[in-house]
Design a protein around this nucleic acid. Structure first.
Lengths: 245, 245
DNA sequence: TATAGTTGTCTATATTAATAGACATTTCGG
DNA sequence: CCGAAATGTCTATTAATATAGACAACTATA
């Protein structure tokens, strides 16, 4: 694993961004744990085979994310180093799974609406196209850092007060419970990874070019009747999805 | 969904690459299914708010991937449009799960070695650090297109002939069977998404800047004793991972 | 067969990314 | 308190990216 780390030219991705991504990866892999510092700029420039200024651009981007902090004369220190491990199982819930990985989790409501659904959503919820659903858009954070943003649909006929209950209780699980659904399970999850779009960049406070993992999931009541269709976009560099079978 | 698609400047990702990524996404979303063609360059340039030449660079990249083909006077036709759905469950196997999605699947052996393992691998396999394992590096393809590349470790003491059996039978499942292990199950899968490195770009024939999903998995025999530790990198734009709980 | 609509090619220019080198400034240990 | 090692700042140059416009070449159709 001592090979020169690879950056490529003329790919449409600036060298400084490729290098920033690689350093971010090394940090979360714990490669620099012994010192708690990023190697000196000249060393990195040598490893990547680029000019020191290019490395400085990469480090500036990481400093802008709050991941590292450079101190003149000393070096560049690692400020944060995390990748939340996120369980996906039949009993997936946002806040629970994080357990003691974060001191504080929060789900903020961005938007609520009552909309007719069709296509994927209607099919997933096994309801007729055009039927009304409550739509909730959320951003979930751990320790103040956004981790995911999601759009969920709930059949209005069954959960007419979903939006209000969520605002009151600030938890999907509790909002379900308040409307008579004590338990639910994940029956389907599909994952796709792609570049974040502009809206996601803003919501998740990502730097452009960042990656999101999009999880399309369906939750159902114990009888198997779908109760929630959700599309959650995780900031890929902040999470590790752990599948429990 | 009629909003102008967003591209951002000065992000370290060239506009033509951002646009190529967005068009690729639209293609796999089926946005152009009615015509089977990408909209004209001038229309795309308007949508993205860039010069036509910039769109042409994006389309040239996609043509280079074999995703589209431009024909002078007619337009730019979509050549391929797929995303293999890849099941992940207790019974995950490569070729089986793809079912009728591909006519032909292949696993090619890149390298074999006997190596002492440590760290993650030893811990995952529940063996002592320094114990010997058979390491197999594979590239898996469906219909001639590489889908994933993987590195697997098998305890040498239990499966001494893993490499040879795999070369003979061209299947992990069959190689296990030939060494007395009739059945195995997935006990752990962790997913991370990141940019592909140079080696992966070459192996999976990806265009630079592409995304891979890295799945770190452990398979065990029916008694729960780990038999395989694998790290598989999927070409993110070619697969959809379907988690079955 | 004319023509509208499309991709292909060329030239020119401006902006951004990357390299190169020099030197200032700060920190820390001997 | 000196000097090695690190980051900060500046100038200059080259290469890659993006814009702009004009026109050629090809396709389909009215």
């Amino acid at each position: 694993m001592n090979a020169k780390k690879a950056v490529e030219r003329q790919t449409g991705v600036a060298l400084w961004r490729q290098i920033a991504d690689l350093i971010r990866l090394s940090i979360s892999n714990g490669d620099y744990d012994q010192t708690g510092m990023v190697p000196p700029e000249t060393v990195l420039a040598g490893q990547f085979g680029v000019n020191r200024h290019t490395v400085r651009s990469a480090l500036a981007a990481l400093a802008n994310e709050g991941l590292v902090q450079a101190i003149q004369g000393r070096g560049t220190m690692i400020q944060r180093k995390e990748r939340l491990s996120f369980p996906i199982s039949r009993r997936t819930r946002f806040s629970q799974g994080l357990g003691d990985q974060a001191r504080e989790t929060e789900a903020r409501l961005l938007a609520k609406a009552t909309v007719p659904v069709a296509g994927d959503v209607a099919k997933g919820l096994k309801i007729d196209p055009g039927a009304l659903c409550i739509q909730l858009d959320l951003v979930s954070s751990a320790d103040g850092r956004p981790v995911s943003c999601s759009t969920s649909f709930f059949p209005q006929s069954r959960f007419p007060a979903m939006a209000e209950e969520f605002e009151r209780l600030r938890s999907i699980t509790k909002a379900f419970a308040a409307q008579g659904l004590a338990d639910y399970v994940r029956i389907s999850t599909e994952l796709v990874a792609r570049h974040a779009d502009a809206g996601e960049l803003a919501l998740l406070r990502l730097s452009p070019g960042a990656i999101v993992i999009e999880a399309t999931a369906i939750n159902a009541d114990p009888e198997g009747v779908p109760v929630q269709f959700s599309r959650t976009r995780f900031a890929a560099d902040r999470v590790k999805l752990k599948i429990e079978t």
